[in-house]
Design a protein around this nucleic acid. Structure first.
Length: 256
DNA sequence: ATGGTCGATGTTCGA
């Protein structure tokens, strides 16, 4: 079984790249963020033509999450009871043996800003939601754009990013609090090249110079984490013309 | 030198 996460930064613009990538990579499940599409505009026909079920929670201009799965999707949850939030950032689904929680964590703008406070509050509330989900589902995956680089090795220049947005200690503590629920960052279960990142700023030739951060993650509950055989970042789509600023992160499992 | 580039929108804002 292969699953993946990808912040596509507008599914309208990126749809051909997403379809090409899915046709080639053949994930059993793909979680996407920043679709920036209302539900009535969702290209569900294109996904069906490729053999995928699709569920989505969209809004105009901002945010928007979706899950594409080869197996049918059930028990869709977009609004955790403890989180009153009109922003469309969460999509929890059951697909085959998996409970999958797709997250587009708020960016936070700047440390100390209102958006930063919203981010930390959102993360605290989503932690409670994930804990409840894990209590009911032995095979839980939490994946998406976390907008947090968990450690200095996830940052191209840790000193210049010290206590900046995406890297601040409260954000890293919030990420750690999710992991402490019993979730493993699958990417770090394996030896990885130095300078492995999932996002590069469009500005200042960030990708060409590998000025990136690893902020997109796949976390898994213990039974799943033990059966994970690989977790990689696929930089190929980031090299295309008119790419998303994020690359897909992919995890594979044996025995599922 | 607090820059730079996208995407959606609308003559800026969020990332």
């Amino acid at each position: 079984m292969k699953i993946a996460t990808w912040n596509v930064n507008s599914l309208r613009v990126r749809l051909p790249q997403v379809l090409d990538w899915m046709e080639s990579a053949q994930p059993d499940l793909l979680a996407v963020q920043e679709t920036k599409l209302t539900d009535d505009a969702f290209p569900v026909g294109d996904l069906h033509a490729l053999g995928y079920h699709a569920v989505y929670s969209g809004q105009k201009t901002y945010n928007g999450v979706a899950v594409f799965s080869k197996t049918p999707i059930e028990n869709v949850q977009t609004d955790p009871p403890n989180l009153k939030d009109p922003q469309r950032r969460i999509l929890a689904v059951t697909a085959g043996p998996l409970r999958v929680i797709n997250l587009y964590v708020p960016n936070g703008s700047e440390v100390g800003s209102d958006k930063y406070a919203y981010k930390l509050d959102w993360l605290a509330k989503i932690r409670d939601f994930i804990a409840q989900e894990m209590a009911q589902n032995p095979h839980t995956v939490v994946l998406g754009d976390f907008n947090i680089a968990p450690e200095d090795r996830d940052v191209h220049d840790p000193e210049s990013w010290r206590e900046k947005i995406l890297c601040s200690t409260p954000e890293r503590d919030a990420f750690r609090a999710l992991a402490d629920l019993g979730l493993t960052d699958l990417f770090r279960r394996f030896e990885q090249p130095e300078g492995s990142f999932s996002w590069w700023d469009y500005r200042a030739a960030g990708f060409r110079r590998n000025l990136g951060l690893r902020i997109d993650h796949i976390l898994a509950s213990p039974h799943l984490a033990e059966r994970c055989t690989a977790c990689t970042i696929d930089k190929a789509p980031r090299r295309l013309e008119r790419p998303s600023d994020h690359a897909p992160v992919v995890a594979e499992f044996a025995g599922f």
